[in-house]
Every structure is written in structure tokens, then in C-alpha cells.
Design a protein around this nucleic acid. Structure first.
Lengths: 231, 231
DNA sequence: CGCTGCGATATGGGATGCCATTCTGCCCGG
DNA sequence: CCGGGCAGAATGGCATCCCATATCGCAGCG
């Protein structure tokens, strides 16, 4: 699998004095999120350490980090396997993300300063452009950046840390399929409503629309993961 | 080596074939939550491994677990230090816990079966008795059990996992001081209101009271941590 | 022909040693 | 008397070895 450029230029040998384990985790997380390693796929410490030209120790730590993100499960003497990702998991996940992000949106509506609003407006405009010209990749990236920024600028580090732990799993759905155009339009509309609520400092409206937005997103991802399900 | 320290009867040498790291994490977590290791206190891998008669490897893993719980911070060449725990952290923490538990309470109000309600009623009654007779320790334990049960029975594993990660830090406040009797009465009242809402299957009321309950708790803990602050 | 038991292999967990970095304290020069 | 630099100690990270256990295949017996 993905062999082995022994001369891997990204090897952090000199680049990163520490945190090799986190680099390994990033590599593996990417593969899992992008679906290169399918659910049920095995991650064996010795294989990975050989492939990346490292010892098992940082790989072990990286696997623990991924387990912590809920991306894999580790069983003794059986290796790590990528967790399943089905409709139910997506709904569960987005329910929690909705709670965290709507909390953030409400906090922002109450306390956002001019600088924060400026950042948001700028990203929002950019996203609208990408949507209009049909650039899906940049649209999604900007969209994600908006969500992350809302959480970050809400000013509660606990929300941010908790959100970060969940977002990798949530975005596993992004690479599965193209989203329904009708849902795309609805999502953009919800983003616009949020911006209106923030400009009006209407915390209740901001929370409500954002919770709804993320519930819709969760349902869309769930529908993609299980076409038989429609709820 | 693994020579059983005669002074430490809890050594899991034979008791636990695996998961020594988790046992170490439990030991250290207990000490931190109970305040035996003060904020800013240092946890040195070699010291701990010597004290517990094991190698650095499981200790190292345990420290990573604690970092993950947000109880310590690890810096290279400086060791792990217990994170500060002040009024602001408590408020931030309980804001997130309130979001998670109120979500759970709402789900329970909509979907709880007879068995779940029975469990809750039983614990609730027990808590009322402990409160009435002034048994603070058992009151707190039963109270915590109710909160945990609500999250557990809500049927969303993501909520449960996320909640578990936050609760250790939240409960660091429990050992700081005795809570204001007026706040105790208010807390009991809020528990009663929640039970009423659950019995009536009123999800909105359940969410509202539980969010309020946890906001109040956060404010109480924050006030204990910083008597100058009163929000 | 099928079932049981034993051994080989795979795999994660723990122990241990070495290394790089950073912090501390002392000594020397100004 | 004070400041800068240097040496040694402290400390976490990585590499490597050994071990316990679970899994799988094969052989031998019923």
C-alpha cells in the first residue's frame, strides 16, 4: 500500500525536531478520511513503521491518537482497524457538532467584534463566489473554514478542542459523493441566514439556524451513506 | 523487572494482563482530581515509573491519556504539568457539558422507555434521601450517577464519549469546598423539574431546565474557584 | 471424512538504552 | 557586583529487543 518512497521528502527527520508521531497521525488520518483505507482496513504497526522508515514507537503513538479521534479501533494482537462509517454514526456525530457549533454561533452573535465579523464576511463572500462559479472543491474548503472560524472565534477553548476531535470523522463523508444541488442551495441559504442573524446580533436566531443547518448536513451525509435511509 | 512492590498491593501484575497504562492513568487522574497533585505540579515519567515499579512506556501512555482529558500539559524536556483550573475554565467546561447533557435530556424526553425512566426515578429518589439526611458524599455520587445515566441512556454514543472526556476536569471542582446550601436546594429543585419534564415527555422543558442547571453548577464552581468573581 | 489439539506465526504491549534539547547553576571576565 | 557563556543534569522522544497472547493451518486420530 502506498509504498515507499524511501527518499520521502516529507520525512520530518530534520524538519520537525519533535512530533513525528503527530506527523504519522496526520498521514494516516488523511488516508482514512479520503477513503484510501476503507472501513475495516487494517493498520499494522510494523507495516507502517517499515513503510515510513521509522520505529514502531511513534507509529504506536499515532495510532493511539487516531483511536482517540474515533477513526480506528485497536485490539490487542489483532491490529488497528478503521471504524465503520454508516448513516447512524453520521447522524450521531452531526447532532453533537450541531450542539457545539450552534453554541458557538450564539456566543458570536452576542460578543463578536468588528474584526471577527470582518473575517466572517470575507470568507462568506468568497464561499458565495465559489458556489456561483461551481468550484466545488474550493467551495467545500471555504465552507469548512467558516465552520472552523465560528468555533474558533467563539472564545471558548473547550468548545474548540471538543469540536476538533469530532470534525475528522464528520468530514469522512465529504469524499463519498457529490452533494445534491438542491441541498447545496439550501446550505448556502442557511449560511446567509446565519450571517444576517450575526449582523443583527440575534443570538437565538443564529443558534437556531445553525443547529438546523448542521442537522440538515448530517441528514444529507447519512442519506449518501445509506440511500435506503431517508429521515 | 516488574518486581512487585510489597507496599503496593494494587499492582496489576497478574490482575490485568493488559491495560497497565490505563491503570496508571486512573491512579494519576485520581490524584489530580482530588487535588493531591496541585495545578502546576510536575509529573515526571521516570519518577512515576520508579514509584509504581514499572517501565516508562506505560507511564508515557498514561500521560498521553491524561493530556487527552485536558488534565495535564506535556512539554518536551520539561515534563508534564497539571493544568490550571480557574473560574474561566470551569465556566467554559460547563457550557459545553450543558450543551451535551441538555441534548441528552431532550432525547430522553422524546424516546425514553419505561426501563430508562425506572432507573432514573430510582436514582432520583435515592438522591433526594441523601440530600434530606445531609449525606453529602453519597448525595454527590448519586447526583453524578444521574448525570452520567442521562447521557448514557440518550442513545448517542458520540455524546457519551465526548461527555466522558470532559467530566474528569469538571469534577475537579467537587473536592475544593462544600457547596452553598442555597445552591444545593436549587440544584435539587432543578433535578425535580427535570424529572417532571421527562415524565411529561416535554423535550423542550427538559432541555431548558438541564441547560440552566448546568450553567448554575458551572457558576457555583467558578465562584468557589475565584471568590472575587460572581456571575 | 471430520474433528481436535498442537505448533508456527502475527501482533500489540512492556522494558530498556541512547539521543537531542533545554534548563540550571557556576565561573570568569568586565 | 553583575552579566554572559559554558558544562552538566534533567527530561521527553525514538529505536530496539523481548514477551504474552490470539489466530490460523496442519497433522494425527477417531
Amino acid at each position: 500500500m502506498t509504498l515507499p518512497d524511501p527518499t520521502d521528502p516529507d520525512l520530518p527527520a530534520a524538519a520537525t525536531p519533535t512530533a513525528i508521531a503527530e506527523w504519522v497521525a496526520d498521514v494516516l488520518r488523511d488516508r482514512i478520511v479520503k477513503g484510501e483505507i476503507a472501513p475495516g482496513g487494517r493498520l499494522v504497526e510494523r507495516k507502517i513503521s517499515a513503510e515510513l522508515n521509522l520505529s514502531r514507537t511513534p507509529v504506536r503513538e499515532a495510532l493511539k491518537l487516531l483511536r482517540n479521534d474515533g477513526l480506528i479501533e485497536i485490539s490487542r494482537n489483532k491490529g488497528a482497524v478503521v471504524t465503520a462509517y454508516g448513516a447512524q454514526e453520521a447522524l450521531d456525530l452531526f447532532e453533537v457538532i450541531a450542539a457545539l457549533e450552534s453554541l458557538s454561533a450564539g456566543r458570536l452573535a452576542r460578543a463578536a467584534g468588528a474584526a471577527e465579523m470582518e473575517e466572517l464576511e470575507e470568507l462568506h463572500d468568497r464561499m458565495l463566489v465559489f458556489h456561483k462559479i461551481g468550484n466545488h472543491t474550493d467551495y467545500f474548503d471555504t465552507n469548512s473554514a467558516i465552520h472552523d472560524l465560528i468555533v474558533e472565534r467563539a472564545g471558548n477553548p473547550v468548545i474548540q478542542a471538543t469540536h476538533r476531535r469530532l470534525i475528522a470523522r464528520a468530514r469522512r463523508g465529504r469524499y463519498l459523493a457529490i452533494m445534491d444541488p438542491a441541498r447545496l442551495r439550501q446550505a448556502v441559504e442557511e449560511h446567509c441566514i446565519l450571517m444576517e442573524a450575526l449582523r443583527a446580533r440575534d443570538a437565538g436566531a443564529a443558534e437556531a439556524v445553525w443547529r438546523r443547518h448542521l442537522a440538515h448536513t448530517g441528514e444529507s451525509v447519512a442519506a449518501l451513506l445509506d440511500p435506503a435511509l431517508h429521515g
